[in-house]
């Protein structure tokens, strides 16, 4: 995956996060973690992943749901699935 594609994916995720958390000030970087995005707590985890699944047309496994801990691991999971940004 080229850097350009990664950037595009990051931007798309940023839009999803902003919508989902009703917060237009969210700025994502590959290292962004739930600690940095206050609203991304354990309660919000599953609903956020559900929305990301729909937007990218993928389905995470139960194991991946546990492995995704920040934006970086989320992007890795998406790339493994060949998600189109």
């Amino acid at each position: 995956m080229t850097n350009l594609m990664k950037t595009a994916m990051l931007l798309k995720l940023q839009g999803i996060f902003r919508d989902h958390f009703l917060d237009d000030s969210i700025t994502l970087a590959a290292l962004s973690s739930p600690e940095e995005i206050e609203a991304w707590d354990s309660l919000a985890h599953i609903s956020l992943l559900t929305v990301v699944e729909r937007a990218f047309g993928v389905r995470f496994s139960a194991i991946e749901m546990g492995e995704i801990v920040d934006v970086g691991t989320l992007m890795e999971a998406l790339m493994r699935k060949g998600a189109n940004h």
Partner: peptide, 15 residues
């Protein structure tokens, strides 16, 4: 209403 919007509405309802 799609699930993603329902979730946003729930969040907004809390506020």
């Amino acid at each position: 209403t799609p699930t993603s919007v329902q979730l946003q509405m729930s969040r907004l309802a809390g506020r």
